[in-house]
Simulated assay, not measured.
Amino acid sequence: MYKKYIDSLIENKELPGAVLYVSRKKQPLCHKAVGSYIGTDEQQFPVTENTLFDVASLTKVIATLPASLLLLSKGDLHLEDPVQHYLPEFKHAAVTVEDLLSHRSGLPADLPFVARDGQRDVMAVIYQTELQQAPGKTVAYSDLGMILLGKIMEKIAGQPLDVYTSEQIFTPWGLHNTRFNLPANLKALSASTEKVGTRFVQGEVHDEKAFHLGGVSGSAGLFSTAEDVARFATHFLYPEEQDVIPPDLMRMATRHRQSNRGFGFEVWNGEGDPLSCGQSWSIGSFGHTGFTGTSVWVDPQEELIVAFLTNAVHYGRSTNIRTIRKTLHTMIYSSIQEEIS
């Protein structure tokens, strides 16, 4: 049922291309690639199982969150520390590392739009950005908080975020197709995102802030495959089966804290508007989404993982991806329940 739904999305031009990876109890149930995209050379290319996608805000949980947890485990990072302890240029003394991780910093979601070909010192602007509410109180999703967290990682590690995460997280976790700043030979294997000016953006980060930061950011910039994203999720579903980060810290990140949030992840607690996994998924399910059309969801009760990578913005930024995600994940969950019964 859900496989036919994916096909219909391509046929109806709701999505240009997508790769869906579904596993349950460590057994792959689906690895399906559909659709195509137009490259920078105006040629059309099919999406394959190995196509790389700009995963956008999945960067927050695939790169920045694990790096934070690893540095926490080493005692190099402390949740209660003020951001100013690591980044003295940041103007708000009351905002802590924990506020950044739980999206309770009080910072706005985004910066005013500046086009890719514009000039902007992103960090200088963030350091001076005013808070919209008192820190530590209200959950309000913020790219800026995760960008700050990425810079804190770099300060502590003494390495750029892309180097640190590649060496300390991605390689030991087996995420061999996950990286920032694709080299030229891999750019051609990535699904292009949006048309900017006369050409499609292919193999370069779609997010303008991450682009102005040189392609490496705590908020966006990562490229990956559906299989790699599912492998990442497997480590959080079975944290005791990896030895990079202490399992108790990984479980802490996926526990509900406030307003359907944990650390980094969204966590469904059954209250409020359903998350992008839909309302049928078990309480305690956790995941994240990305603006380009990407998402990953984990249901610990069902031992279910769904990685869904698309380049929805290929057709422009007004996409129906939020409705599509809920429909797809509800269909997948229903099919699992039918098999059980």
Rank of each mutant, 00 (worst) to 15 (best):
L79A: 07
K151E: 13
V298D: 01
P112F: 11
F223R: 10
M331W: 05
Q128K: 12
L107R: 09
N311V: 07
H235N: 08
V296S: 01
S190V: 08
K151I: 00
G218T: 01
H256V: 14
I305T: 02
E302D: 10
G278D: 04
A191R: 03
G35N: 10
G118Q: 15
P108D: 12
E338V: 09
A312R: 15
T193K: 02
A188S: 12
F170C: 09
M1T: 05
D117S: 12
S259C: 10
I156W: 08
G106S: 11
Q132E: 15
L189Q: 13
Y164K: 09
Q119M: 09
D207L: 04
R116W: 15
Q43V: 11
E204I: 07
Q202R: 04
P183M: 02
I156Y: 09
S334H: 14
K91H: 06
L309C: 11
Q128C: 01
H31P: 02
A134G: 05
G272Y: 01
A63S: 15
F90W: 04
L101V: 11
L79Q: 08
P46H: 08
K151S: 07
S335A: 10
L328S: 07
L304E: 02
I156K: 06
T327N: 14
I245D: 10
T96I: 07
K74Y: 03
D117Q: 13
L70Y: 10
S8I: 00
K32T: 13
L111C: 08
S57H: 11
V267W: 05
Y315P: 09
E227H: 07
T234W: 08
V139D: 12
I62W: 00
G290L: 04
L52Q: 06
G203F: 02
P247K: 09
S285Q: 01
G284D: 03
E240Q: 14
G203H: 06
F223P: 08
V296R: 01
F308A: 09
G106I: 00
L87F: 04
C277F: 12
E154G: 04
F90E: 02
K91L: 02
P247G: 05
R257L: 15
S57C: 12
E42H: 15
E42I: 09
S102M: 15
H92G: 03
P66S: 14
I332S: 01
T178Y: 06
I156C: 08
N260A: 14
E339Y: 06
F170T: 05
S285R: 00
E271Q: 13
I126R: 06
K4A: 12
P274K: 02
V97R: 14
G270P: 02
H329C: 01
